[in-house]
Design a protein around this nucleic acid. Structure first.
Length: 481
RNA sequence: AGCGGGGUGGAGGAGUGGUACCUCAGGAGGCUCAUAACCUCCAGACCCAGGUUCGAAUCCUGGCCCCGCAACCA
């Protein structure tokens, strides 16, 4: 992030593809985004925070068929499932949600198409691919093993159809210029990866499919026989959510054109977010994204999560076991922000107990009990929090865990001080001196509560309220049974 | 030599030339305000082999191993 006090701030996640239940990796992305948004707001910035669902494409169509549902009915169900995450994960109230099947978005996708077409960047040519009749789709290289479809073990047939292509190759130089800016991709080594990829040479991409094979998508303007290939329409959602192109609300101008734009994505998204989408923006003469942050993946028990292995940990399970606030804590403090992280229930339990039950929950309880018993009135609210600059610095580097380390180091300091100064004794032998000590501790706890705000908003509120009322709160984080 | 990242105590992380740090788990004490929580101390590590240097986890060379990417799945 760049220090830009006068600018507005735009933040979007990627739009998850709704062919299965919400994944913990997406929950991570949302929670990271939400922490950034809340922090930026606390600096007084105006923020537009958005997510949504990517609902077109072959796989969705297939998944709906398999579930025995109509496609629209199917995506409606899943859009709702994903929208529930807002409550489940305690996300900001004004989080926007864009569905790629919404009429406005379709209009935007069409406009994007028209602009690229007008620029001369879309053209028609035969697409050749290996088609599997069993899968009813073109296979990717990875799906072909020993010249056979990896699922059906049959030889795919070479098929040609006329498709529209996007002149990706034309943007090679401009993309290199874009990628040359040091902050456009975090972490830095992914930027190098992207640069190398571009230098190897870009090939034009097909961005449509014949309707005979795929109907679930946005129709190509002025060509009834083709639909847009999913990603072309999905990427446009980042600006359709702002009201582009007509921009009746003025949000597009305010947040995209004049604001600082940040996208969050998984590490496998570099090509899509930082290359293809940026080339589309260039083609349409729209400002590029200022920065894209790529997080790592969450594995479980040393392997990728998969239903067949049975090691899937879902966001809902996490929240059910630990609660919303603790889930946010676990994802932000203990998941490495850019590398892959391995997670097991055992580790989660340890992290929960050590940091929350024994750490913050216990500290708040012991300090507030002493204060409630010995102070006649709540302490005056401290003027300004300590440590906010350090948090800001960590968050500018997307070091969510480091930011939380900072807060938690304050908890350790307070615990040490209590042991050393023994206010629980002093308050009996020298009440005046004891009260001074307790007021100091309460101020430290206030500071911790304040700094926790972007990461654990409810906990933060409970702590600040406890101090305001000079009252010991209910157990913040009950011991796991 | 396809491109890139990485291998630090039992586990997870920090540490880009100068006594190897943090958290959890283990052991021993202490305290009693607190959710049997908290504090102190102890034990334990830099993948291997060379090299540069007064000095290397950190730089160089070689080796072994892991992980991304290598384009139409998003």
């Amino acid at each position: 992030m760049i220090d830009s006090p006068m600018r507005t701030f735009y933040l979007t996640t990627t739009l998850p593809y709704v062919n299965s239940d919400p994944h913990i990796g997406f929950a991570l992305e949302l929670v990271q985004a939400d922490a950034l948004v809340r922090f930026r707001r606390s600096l007084g910035e105006e923020v537009f925070f958005t997510t949504g669902t990517d609902e077109h494409g072959q796989k969705i169509y297939e998944a709906a068929q398999k579930a025995g549902k109509g496609t629209q009915e199917y995506v409606d169900y899943y859009a709702n499932e994903f929208q529930k995450l807002k409550g489940t994960l305690g996300l900001s109230d004004d989080l926007h949600f864009i569905r790629t099947t919404s009429p406005h978005h379709k209009l935007a996708a069409e406009e994007m198409w028209k602009r690229c077409m007008a620029k001369g960047d879309i053209y028609k040519k035969p697409f050749e691919g290996l088609y599997c009749v069993g899968c009813e789709k073109f296979l990717t290289k990875k799906e072909i093993i020993n010249d056979l479809c990896h699922i059906h073990k049959t030889a795919p047939q070479l098929l040609k159809e006329e498709n529209y292509f996007f002149k990706f190759s034309r943007y090679q130089e401009k993309l290199l210029e874009y990628l040359n800016q040091s902050n456009v991709i975090v972490p830095e080594w992914r930027r190098i990866e992207a640069i190398n990829f571009v230098k190897e040479g870009l090939e034009d991409f097909s961005i449509s499919r014949e309707k005979s094979r795929l109907t679930w998508g946005v129709s190509v303007p002025e060509d009834d026989t083709q639909v847009m290939y999913v990603w072309f329409d999905a990427l446009t959602s980042y600006i359709s959510t702002l009201g582009w192109p007509n921009d009746e609300s003025g949000n597009f101008k305010k947040f995209w054109e004049e604001g600082y734009t940040l996208q969050m994505a998984g590490k496998d998204q570099v090509r899509f977010q930082s290359l293809m989408w940026q080339a589309m923006l260039m083609s349409a003469d729209i400002k590029n994204t200022d920065q894209v942050f790529y997080h790592g993946f969450i594995n479980s028990g040393g392997q990728k999560m998969s239903k067949s292995i049975g090691n899937v940990i879902s966001p809902y399970e996490l929240v059910q076991k630990y609660g919303t606030e603790a889930t946010r804590y676990l994802l932000l403090r203990h998941v490495h922000s850019t590398e892959d992280t391995d997670v097991t229930w055992e580790k989660l339990d340890e992290w929960y107990t050590a940091g929350l039950t024994n750490g913050i929950g216990n500290l708040v309880a012991r300090v507030m009990k002493l204060c409630a018993d010995n102070l006649s009135a709540p302490i005056a609210e401290p003027e300004a929090p300590q440590g906010k600059e350090e948090i800001k610095k960590a968050l500018e580097e997307f070091s969510f865990n480091q930011a939380l380390e900072l807060v938690f180091s304050l908890i350790a300091i307070a615990d040490e001080r209590i042991t050393r100064d023994e206010p629980f004794k002093v308050v009996k032998s020298d009440p005046t001196q004891g009260r001074v000590m307790l007021a100091g501790l309460a101020a430290e706890v206030w500071n911790i509560g304040y700094l926790l705000g972007p990461f654990m908003p409810e906990t933060s509120k409970k702590i600040l309220d406890a101090i305001k009322e000079n009252k010991k709160p209910e157990n913040l984080f009950p011991r796991l049974v």
